[in-house]
């Protein structure tokens, strides 16, 4: 459990960091995935650029209808932030499910998203929330929608030398109901499946449904068929069941020691049902 030799730098300035990344450095955020991978020698970056000292990447603020979270904001900061809890409760709820206390104190929202683990907790909510990522490299900045960001298993829209600097989250409609429900893999704590749901109601009808799913397929995704089935309904148990049954539509389910593809698919439906029920009940 000893990593290969590597160069380590911990710049305090973003520009400096981007320069180092441009010349081949590997970004280190909270280190909750990269460090174990390095210790197992499954990765051997020559130069690790620790982003942990860049104060400018750690913030949560509200601006004109959106929340902005710096990429190096820890899960615990998200989970416990009064601002996130009131303006975007789904994200805070999702953060509270990640790993354990130690992991939440170290792991960051940017690091988690950039790693794009197919069973990570955050991406389900990031999908349901339709967030945007602010990316930066030495050659400039750009903004990418979450749908374009997650490309495949461990694969994102990030180009070499590029990092997430900020996650932009729309402020939640105060009347919306949200929920993140997760089946926990007993060894790792990752999601066997995790479903994030956002429901807005008006006049007794579901006007907007957003469902993000993690753990089920090669990457987190929006279950748009389920959303469609629910929108326009009254959100009764039967409506929810129908929508939940469609959550796995078009997805080839993962299989591993802890859950076969069939079981995962079924659990995605069960947990979608649970997340939707809670979200519907919370929507006012």
């Amino acid at each position: 459990m000893i990593a290969h030799i590597f160069e380590y730098s911990a710049p305090t300035d973003l520009k400096e960091a981007l320069g180092q990344l441009a010349s081949g450095g590997k970004p280190l955020a909270g280190g909750m995935s990269l460090i174990p991978i390095m210790k197992l020698r499954l990765a051997a970056p020559e130069h690790v650029v620790d982003l942990g000292r860049i104060v400018a990447l750690n913030y949560i603020r509200e601006e004109a209808g959106t929340l902005h979270a710096g990429a190096m904001t820890t899960h615990y900061q998200i989970e416990s932030s009064p601002l996130v809890r009131s303006r975007c409760p789904l994200l805070a709820e999702a953060a509270s499910h990640i790993g354990d206390v130690q992991v939440r104190n170290m792991g960051t929202i940017g690091g988690s998203a950039a790693h794009a683990d197919p069973a990570a907790d955050y991406p389900a909510s990031l999908m349901a929330l339709e967030v945007q990522f602010r990316l930066a490299s030495s050659s400039g900045e750009r903004t990418v929608s979450v749908e374009d960001f997650f490309v495949d298993t461990f694969a994102t829209a990030l180009q070499p030398g590029e990092i997430i600097t900020e996650v932009i989250i729309p402020v939640e409609d105060p009347s919306a109901g949200v929920s993140y429900q997760k089946m926990v893999q007993p060894a790792s704590g990752y999601a066997i499946v995790g479903v994030a749901a956002r429901i807005t109601k008006s006049g007794g009808k579901v006007t907007k449904a957003r469902v993000g799913v993690t753990g089920l397929g090669p990457k987190a995704f929006r279950a748009k068929a389920a959303e469609k089935l629910l929108e326009g309904t009254e959100g009764t148990a039967a409506d929810i069941a129908k929508a939940a049954a469609a959550v796995s539509e078009g997805v080839e389910s993962n299989t591993d020691l802890h859950a076969s593809a069939n079981y995962r698919t079924q659990m995605a439906r069960v947990y979608a049902g649970r997340a939707l029920s809670v979200a519907v009940s919370r929507a006012t």
């Binding site: 893999q185 007993p186 060894a187 790792s188 020691l257 802890h258």
Partner: peptide, 24 residues
């Protein structure tokens, strides 16, 4: 009773080789 199992595959590889898969 509920969680732990050391699983070797048919070729004798211990596939619960870490605490990520061996559920204490």
């Amino acid at each position: 009773a509920l969680w732990e199992q050391a699983v070797y595959d048919d070729n004798g590889q211990l596939i619960t080789g870490e605490l990520m898969d061996y559920a204490l």
